[in-house]
């Protein structure tokens, strides 16, 4: 069953003078012929589909059209061309901490956000305790929201968004919220949710995170679709190689080639590193200070092959 089906999606964005000018200025500029609107395609001809339980990672640099595409999937924007079919409810975690009201209390904000996300009062009554507990804000429930630290704010936002149970979850750089402990907790929660058959979309600049969590990859560059597929490791390799060399692949063969190059590069770098270490060790051994050399050797053994030390005992 296709949960998300995007066919030939193109989205045109407009930008230009109009944003900050008023009506008076607009009329004057129109009369002078000095009014400019720039149209540009944030996304061009993008096609992909996700089945239930899929986790899609969208990769690409700044201005690749990732956020615009997410907005279109979430229904905030409509594609200029093409079609996106979405089945089920969506929880889009886009820029989590914005949209809260500083003067309302934590509790009021929680309900308001729940309402924005499309849940009913009964549901929020039921979930409220869990949300506050997960955000670890039990002592702050009746404080005005503006008194919270920014970490607490994002924690609350994250908790509300992920303790509800959507069919589709959109994560835009949200897995880097809060302090270390909370980050681990939120990561675990996310994995738990995803293991329940939720379909997810992840945008992250951390490639290792994408490798770990996703089973499909969509690669965008300046609004163009470079690749879409379930060969996650290959695509990630190719992408990382692209980040190094800035060579954009044109077709599947080039992607494979790029991925292979990346593997070679990784090998090379590994070898280089080892070589450097060996050199360092040799230099130490050649110097007369035996004790220092032994210590260095021991450290390397401990790091690389701790099992050797154990065997001796």
């Amino acid at each position: 069953m296709k949960v998300i089906d995007a066919k030939g999606v193109s989205i045109r964005y407009i930008t230009g003078d109009f944003k900050d000018i008023g009506l008076k200025e607009y009329v004057v500029r129109k009369l002078k012929g000095n009014y400019h609107v720039v149209n540009f395609w944030a996304d061009r001809d993008i096609t992909f589909s996700l089945d239930q339980g899929d986790m899609l990672g969208i990769i690409g640099g700044n201005g690749a059209g990732k956020s615009t595409l997410l907005k279109a999937i979430a229904g905030i924007m409509v594609p200029t061309k093409g079609k996106i079919k979405v089945k089920g409810t969506i929880a889009a975690l886009l820029e989590l901490a914005s949209g809260f009201d500083g003067d309302l209390t934590v509790k009021e904000n929680t309900y308001l956000r729940g309402a924005f996300l499309g849940y009913t009062r009964a549901f929020m009554d039921e979930m409220y305790g869990k949300i506050i507990a997960f955000a670890e804000l039990e002592d702050f429930q009746n404080r005005p929201f503006k008194q919270l630290s920014s970490g607490m704010k994002s924690r609350l936002a994250f908790s509300i968004a992920c303790l509800v149970d959507p069919d589709i979850m959109i994560l835009d750089e949200v897995l880097s919220v809060g302090d270390g402990a909370f980050r681990k907790k939120s990561g675990d929660k996310m994995k738990e949710i995803l293991s329940h058959g939720v379909t997810g979309i992840l945008v992250s600049h951390s490639i290792s995170q994408v490798r770990e969590m996703c089973n499909k990859i969509l690669w965008l560059d300046h609004g163009r679709q470079i690749a879409f597929g379930d060969n996650v490791q290959e695509l990630c390799d190719a992408y990382e190689e692209f980040l190094q060399t800035k060579r954009l692949p044109e077709n599947a063969e080039e992607i494979t080639a790029l991925a292979e190059e990346h593997a070679l590069r990784v090998e090379r770098e590994k070898a280089k590193k080892q070589e450097a270490e060996v050199k360092k060790l040799k230099a130490l051994l050649e110097s007369d200070d035996e004790e220092v050399a032994l210590k260095a050797a021991l450290r390397i053994v401990r790091q690389k092959k701790p099992e050797l030390l154990k065997e001796k005992k």
Partner: peptide, 18 residues
């Protein structure tokens, strides 16, 4: 519809307080 009513109520509350 129910969700929209809930949202509406919460918005009214917020606007009154603001």
């Amino acid at each position: 519809l129910k969700a929209n009513r809930f949202l509406f109520e919460e918005l009214v509350k917020r606007d009154f307080k603001q």
